[in-house]
Structures are given as C-alpha cells and as structure tokens.
C-alpha cells in the first residue's frame, strides 16, 4: 500500500508517526503525479492551493490497473474491505492461472 498527497515529507512523517503507519507516504508537493493522473482538485485547499482528490487504485504486479475508486463526495471514502475484495479476486485469478 502506498499513499500519496501534496503534503511535504515532514508533514507526512508526522502523520506516519502519529498514526503508526508502516506503508510509505509519498509527497507530491508540486502535483506532478497528481496532475499526470488527472486527480487535481483545483483550489481544494483553504489557502487556494491545488490538492489531490481522494482516489484509490489497485495496480497488479504487471502495472495494470485492476480496480479504481473515485468518490463523488469527499466525505465518503473507500473502506478497507472495498479495496481488499478486488485484491483477493486478483490473487485468486493469478493463483488459478499458475
């Protein structure tokens, strides 16, 4: 699991420590990736700066997108089980293919 936001590495490190997260939290302060992935929410921040919209992707080991979730309401986010279900499905299909 990898998380990405416009927060600085220092802010992300604070978040990681305070929440005890073990996954990498990447910093896209200049919105390079967020823009390339068309996820910019213009003026999303209170100070008018652009941020990333909430979005979740499941990428398989070949780099293909297997599941996406774009919420239309930013208070409604994907639950862990919503991301885990396609992950399980992906694992099953890859095992049966072996």
């Amino acid at each position: 699991m990898i998380a990405i936001s416009v927060d600085s590495p220092a802010d992300s490190e604070n978040l990681r420590r305070s929440q005890g997260y073990t996954f990498p939290i990447l910093s896209d302060a200049h919105e390079d990736v967020i823009r390339r992935w068309d996820l910019v929410q213009v003026h999303g921040r209170r100070d008018g700066a652009d941020i990333s919209r909430p979005a979740e992707f499941l990428i398989d080991s070949s780099g293909k997108v297997r599941w996406v979730n774009f919420t239309e309401d930013f208070v409604v986010r994907a639950r862990p089980e919503e991301a885990l279900a396609p992950f399980d499905a992906m694992n099953k299909s890859s095992h049966s293919g072996e």
Binding site: A3, S5, L15
Partner: peptide, 15 residues
Amino acid sequence: AQAAGVVLIFYRGYW
C-alpha cells in the same frame, strides 16, 4: 514472495 500488487491511495492531505 513478490508483491501481488499495490493499493495506491491518493488523499487530500493534512497540510
């Protein structure tokens, strides 16, 4: 084991 995949989470951030 190799990673079967990655869940990528873009979020609004805490600023």
